[in-house]
Design a binder for these strands. Structure first.
Lengths: 256, 256
DNA sequence: CTGTGTATCTCGCGA
DNA sequence: TCGCGAGGTACACAG
């Protein structure tokens, strides 16, 4: 799996190494050591010489990690041009991107370890608990939101954006449901209000008068959001994706 | 800088290695090889056996990278408990976190390379072009928004959230300015409308009548946002953080 | 290509 | 802690 490793390579060595593996696009490339990083694009940034870790994935994405946090210090999600060369006696990696026009340059002063790791295609990855799943669940069992609710549409497109669930209640009133997988904030209330307004406008083109209900469905809601919700005459309903509560010995020991 | 490296370690070896370096919290730890990853917390996920790269930073953050994308496949931003042990003949890394209660487990089937990299403290990192900078600029030169505008407050706290710029125009009318560093969307319009409403309510407690203007200041705006803005009687002003347009030979060659 | 919305968002700042 | 908002957000998806 470790295809190649260089220890404290010379600039030219590193450049050759990088160029070779960038070409094949088969390996995850890593370089660790002292470097400067410059970014220019949507914003601009400079990082003084420090000990950083560079990752280049086979898909061309680039990330430079500092010793803290999950987020890279600098990155490039999709590179259109990825080149390594020697300039002023130092190896430089340049990751460029059009649209938006952006450039990340990593200037290696003291590369310590460079590796090329062979990576097979990614294996099956399943994530559960997303909003999409919640939507599917509630589309099947709208009574979890309110008895008598009938779902007319999912992801109903309306004046930019889609309404999570569009429904009719037991009295025939139209209902806009906005789902959130986490605690609902004021943003969600604004979003819901926007959709309700769109639906009202839409219905007023065919109906004389309309009453459209707006329901925010989430496991929880912040206090300010709740206030604004009530202020706007919208409603809140608790919904929850069932989480398997495994209490394996390991987990128990780690949390207790 | 490369403190220690193991090639194809036995489970017990890897566990010992991890435990030792987790204790010192001095090194960035890396393990690459075949593993399974399980996550359970705000959501839940499983990844089949695959070739992944594990990074553990000195601050305790954990990330598991698959061969694609900037985002890790699994991660843990801040771990309260980080342990490595052998179970059923396999080395397991467990990263646990209270609040939210979350657990990431990496089960190593075939660890290939494990490294401990010495990392010095992060060097000076300067980002320019942020909204904060834009705010500072416009607070100093409010005439860039509108002639005669006087800034009364920055980050004025109001009903949860802060108003970027609170000002008064040449006619003495109060003005709420919402800044965006990028293209303004409907969200920004909602936000601005919310703030204008808050200010109106606030002023109505001391004034008989009020007229509060709302200005969205950004380099650009989406069409739907513009429509909603006009609909709500709010205004848009183009502002731009000056971007240095370096056209160094390198950049030119990379983009042309 | 833009526009929109989700995210285990992360991260930092305040109350 | 919670709540809010920014982010070079990344990323997927629709029109």
């Amino acid at each position: 799996m470790l295809r190649e490793q260089l220890l404290s390579p010379e600039p030219a060595e590193l450049a050759t190494f990088l160029t070779r593996h960038l070409r094949t696009r088969e390996c995850l490339i890593q370089v660790a050591g002292l470097a400067e990083v410059v970014y220019h694009g949507r914003a601009a940034s400079t990082a003084d010489v420090g000990a950083y870790l560079l990752l280049i994935k086979p898909d061309g994405s680039v990330q430079v990690h500092a010793p803290k946090g999950v987020k890279p210090m600098n990155w490039q999600p999709k590179t259109d041009e990825l080149t390594a060369f020697v300039e002023d006696g130092r190896c430089i990696l340049a990751a460029a991107r059009r649209s938006p026009q952006e450039l990340v340059r990593v200037i290696w002063l003291e590369p310590q370890v460079a590796q090329a790791l062979e990576i097979r295609e990614p294996a099956g990855f399943v994530l559960s608990g997303s909003e999409k799943q919640l939507q599917e669940l509630l589309a099947r069992q709208p009574e979890l939101i309110e008895p008598g609710l009938r779902v007319l549409n999912r992801e109903l497109p309306v004046a930019s954006g889609g309404i999570d669930l569009y429904a009719q209640d037991a009295h025939g009133r139209y209902v806009v449901v906005e789902l959130k997988r986490g605690k609902a904030t004021q943003d969600a209330v604004s979003q819901l209000a926007r959709y309700v307004r769109s639906v009202e406008e839409m219905l007023l083109r065919t109906h004389r008068t309309v009453e459209v209900r707006g329901i925010l469905a989430a496991p929880d809601i912040t206090v300010p959001a709740r206030l604004e919700l009530e202020d706007r005459n919208l409603e809140f309903v608790v919904v929850q994706v069932a989480q398997v509560t495994t209490t394996s010995p390991v987990q128990a020991s780690l949390f207790d």
